[in-house]
Design a protein around this nucleic acid. Structure first.
Lengths: 343, 343
DNA sequence: CCGGTTTATGTAACCGGTTACAGTCGTCAT
DNA sequence: ATGACGACTGTAACCGGTTACATAAACCGG
């Protein structure tokens, strides 16, 4: 049987109130008693029951995290940042994935709601309202990505990032640039597409039809294969790095040189992006930082230190590497990547 | 204010017991009442307080997970598997990282203990006892990796995997094979080293001195740089894929051809391994499966359906790709990777 | 029409913490 | 000497669920 605060009180020959006060330091306890109680509690290996504690304190010291997926390096980085934030603020992390299903996401939020003090939700759906609506303001909420809905919102300036990447490809002399999108209803992907189109508008060039992907690497491979048979462009801009890498694989498999025959750029700057051959030009997001700050804001909201409807926009960094090199020109790429702040 | 079961009972004009029974289906409730109560509960958006529930039920429906680190694809895959297992068994996942610090790990286990029904702990330390000792059998425990200690244990047959990889390198004609290890006190790394040495013993070849790494990619890069100046071997076997990739980067940066000038092999078969250039020969572990099964076993133990001291050994698969090709021979590698079961 | 069983529901005692409130005791200024 | 005050500690009422036990109503064969 587990040892309870009453067991400790009996062993230390004091009341439960004194034990509670000694352990939490909430009220005055004489030095002798304090020491004695702590010693007994340590000897008995007493750990207070979190459920009982949350019942009377009305807090759980836990932040819930709901992610659409856990596949690939993007989420690995994000989770790392989330853990850093939780650890830093003395909170636990309750993690769940919704696998892209809205109904499942709403169900997960329901069961999480009573176990956490606040939630960080990454909702890739255009109708983020249904997700935040499921909570109806009952729990402090920080949304990462997505568009509308209650709660604070963390987002990446997808439009600016895509604009910068596309402008860069145009400057490198590429004229026929293909865009590989994420899922049709994904807001981040849509905004990146808008940036891609605006850059074309500026340059007075009509863009190609969009190739649809789903953010997973395999869909990038398929997109690359499709482009191989449908007329190769000068360059490909994929809506994220995973698809860009898949696309690269398709091209190299067909014996093409990148960037000699076709240039490639992605979005996110996942750790892998600088390791592949050729290293990938991309719009970099400080993924882990974003996760950490999301938790920190959520905790601040729980503590009542922050306003609820705060917005935070992360500006991506244009990271120029070898994969976007000018067509034909096979000269050595710059040895160190050039980091250039967008705006 | 939150809506409680008493609020629902009042609104539905029944007792709290009836509401509880209706919601949990634990006891007979008339069809009319059942429907009526569920309707009211739905309208009021009632979510039972998890703390109160865990207090009387003595269970939390949560499994705690403690990992040494969250960096890189290995953990991304592992977490994905853990989430799959938790979702499949209807449990929540409480995630934490100990950042390699034993004291921190023990502290984390203490605070987790009262919030979970069971724990899955990945302890890379040789003295796993101190970790499992911190729990002293009070919570069902599944350890991943590590050596001794209480609880069930999931491990990879590191020795067999390393033996297979080293034999393969020897068969490819490499004689001078360097080993890049993980942290000195890491049990997995030690076992891999043992497999590497045993393969050399079989072949009657004296191995090189070990190059020490820490499982992170950067340490692989440093190891590669060291090898470049200390006399290049025929091949490098790194104790995990991340370091193998770092090493590869160092060699390519120096203008060497892999596997033409030096062959490389790793361990784990992280998703990135097949995407890099050249694709990496490695000992493959079904990382996500291991995570999922660890959770499933832990849940079975919580339910009393499984014996505590169960052991499970995962046999790695030798995955032969381009990076281990014979020295000198620059011929095209097999187009499809050859998967060959160890044993 | 009646004792016995089944079905449906309510009452209240838990689960294990926290804390308002009350009480005791010693100190000190008046 | 005494009332006020502060320091310390104990009692018991919460927090919000679950469920053993009690009770009432309905149904049954004889």
């Amino acid at each position: 049987m587990k040892v309870t605060i009453r067991d400790v009180a009996r062993a230390a020959d004091v009341s439960v109130a004194t034990v509670s006060r000694a352990l939490n330091g909430t009220d005055t306890v004489s030095a002798d008693t304090l020491e004695h109680v702590l010693k007994i509690a340590r000897e008995m290996d007493f750990v207070p029951h979190a459920g009982a504690r949350s019942l009377s304190l009305r807090r759980t010291d836990t932040i819930g995290v709901l992610l659409p997926d856990l596949h690939g390096e993007y989420f690995s980085e994000l989770i790392r940042g989330l853990d850093l934030g939780a650890r830093g603020t003395g909170h636990h992390l309750l993690l769940s994935a919704s696998h892209g299903d809205i109904a499942e996401a709403v169900a997960a939020l329901r069961t999480m709601r009573s176990r956490v003090d606040g939630l960080v939700v990454m909702s890739p759906f255009a109708d983020g309202e249904s997700v935040s609506g499921a909570l109806s303001g009952k729990v402090p909420l920080v949304m990462i990505g997505g568009s509308e809905g209650a709660g604070a919102r963390f987002s990446v300036d997808n439009h600016a990032g895509a604009l910068a990447v596309t402008r860069h490809l145009l400057e490198m002399g590429h004229r026929d640039i293909a865009f590989v999108s994420g899922p049709a209803d994904n807001v981040d992907s849509r905004e990146r597409l808008r940036g891609y189109r605006d850059a074309h508008r500026e340059a007075g060039i009509a863009p190609r039809p969009v190739v649809q992907g789903d953010f997973r690497e395999d869909s990038g491979f398929e997109a690359g294969t499709l482009l191989l048979s449908n007329g190769l462009p000068d360059a490909v801009f994929a809506a994220n790095d995973a698809m860009a890498i898949g696309c690269l694989r398709a091209f190299r498999g067909a014996g093409l040189s990148v960037p000699g025959d076709v240039a490639i750029a992605g979005f996110d700057d996942i750790p892998m992006a600088r390791l592949i051959e050729p290293a990938l030009t991309t719009a970099g997001i400080a993924i882990a930082d974003m996760g950490r700050e999301a938790i920190e804001l959520c905790v601040a909201m729980v503590r009542g230190e922050a306003e609820a409807p705060e917005r935070r926009l992360f500006a991506p960094t244009l990271v120029i590497r070898a994969s976007s090199g000018a067509k034909q020109e096979r000269a050595a790429p710059p040895s160190r990547p050039i980091r250039e702040e967008v705006r």
